[in-house]
Computed example of a mutant assay.
Amino acid sequence: MEKVIVYEYDKRNFKEIEKLIEEQDSVIVDWAIFNKKGNEDKVEFSAGTEAVYIDISSLLFNEDRAENLIGLIVPFLNITLENYECDIYIIVDKRYSEIIKNTLYLRISEIQKLEILLGMPHESINNVVDIDEAMFNSMIHHLNSNLFGNDNFKKRLKEELIKYRLFNKIGEQPIFSVFICGESGIGKTEIARLLHNYLTPTEKMIKINFGNYSDENALSSLIGSPRGYVGSNKGELSEKILRSKSKIILIDEFEKASKPVFNFFLELLEDGNFTDSLGREFDLNKYLIVFTSNIKKQDVSKTISPELMSRFNFMCQLNPLSQEDKQNYISYKKNQMIKKIEEKLNIKLNETQMIDIMNIDTRTIQNLRDINTKIMNNISKQIGFR
């Protein structure tokens, strides 16, 4: 049974899409005109029609009924591919792409952008491999400017990413994975957040926290459990990948994962893809996965097997910030917060107030979250909020 490609479109572009398709001597039709015909009957199109774009969106307006209704489209999938001389494309409003993936995953090979197929302008590059050298250097500058301390780590990360960009392009390294350990609150998760915000600032971040998982159900929580099982679910990792165009995945508190989860990532990092409990295939080529852990570097081998450690492209430990780094961070964070207050609340602070906000004794504070709390408390005092 041959699988087909479905092309999703942005409803906001529909008038432009219709015009372009018409200019290409092609037509858009609703799926229902095929459903009215028998399996052996062809739908006739005007002579010279180059392509027919079959829109299945009307099947999916009512999400509660969609899973039952979508079965109506299956019988003509092979008909459309075999019985017509013109090109046939299945298209859908991108708002319903997730439903399509969940219900027709056995018949669909992948979902692509209709705008790209038609040669229309489309979204910017969203991965670390395909950006050009100037944008890559800009991304590294963004990371270095907003991540304080740990200069050796930042240097090594750049070197490893340069190597990854090279070997991914020749098919040797599908995924880049970095394992970062160290004390809580020193910037481990911020690395993934900075990369995500630079490449895809408008998308939801793909973040999995194993501190929220129970050992017994961790793998099912991650990739789902089969249909029909009591308490079945679609899987947090699968769903978040489907809902975001980000190519950065943050796996937080990885040391708390169960053995089946460790084995899952052992295979994922080797193959670059996985299949979830519903049989949906996920190709993670050009994805960057950041694993974080609060354990010390010398204790990593007590929790994670040598086989899994060998799959990580880069392993490191972040060190607590120096006093100078903490003061630089306070200045950076203070300016960031004050700018938002001035823009959104139209509140101006004078130079004396700025100095008072910076008055934080960080000698006994290592956690950046605690420093953030001190900054916020000082700002609140200065502007009179309680």
Score class of each variant (00 low, 15 high):
residue 122 H to D: 07
residue 55 D to M: 04
residue 41 D to C: 04
residue 30 D to V: 02
residue 42 K to S: 12
residue 30 D to L: 03
residue 108 I to N: 02
residue 45 F to I: 13
residue 77 L to E: 05
residue 148 F to Q: 02
residue 106 L to S: 13
residue 102 N to R: 11
residue 152 N to F: 12
residue 85 E to P: 02
residue 67 E to C: 05
residue 57 S to I: 01
residue 115 E to S: 00
residue 141 H to L: 15
residue 149 G to K: 05
residue 149 G to T: 01
residue 76 F to I: 09
residue 72 L to W: 08
residue 69 L to P: 01
residue 39 N to K: 15
residue 147 L to K: 01
residue 82 E to T: 14
residue 120 M to R: 05
residue 86 C to S: 12
residue 150 N to F: 05
residue 138 S to W: 05
residue 123 E to I: 07
residue 59 L to D: 07
residue 112 Q to I: 00
residue 52 V to S: 04
residue 95 R to M: 08
residue 89 Y to D: 03
residue 136 F to Y: 13
residue 82 E to Q: 12
residue 118 L to Q: 00
residue 56 I to K: 09
residue 107 R to D: 10
residue 75 P to Y: 13
residue 130 D to S: 08
residue 48 G to L: 09
residue 111 I to L: 05
residue 127 N to R: 07
residue 35 N to K: 09
residue 21 I to M: 04
residue 19 K to R: 12
residue 137 N to Y: 13
residue 60 L to E: 01
residue 55 D to G: 05
residue 61 F to S: 12
residue 81 L to N: 14
residue 63 E to N: 08
residue 151 D to H: 08
residue 25 D to I: 15
residue 102 N to A: 11
residue 147 L to H: 10
residue 116 I to R: 01
residue 73 I to S: 10
residue 88 I to R: 09
residue 151 D to K: 13
residue 107 R to G: 04
residue 74 V to T: 09
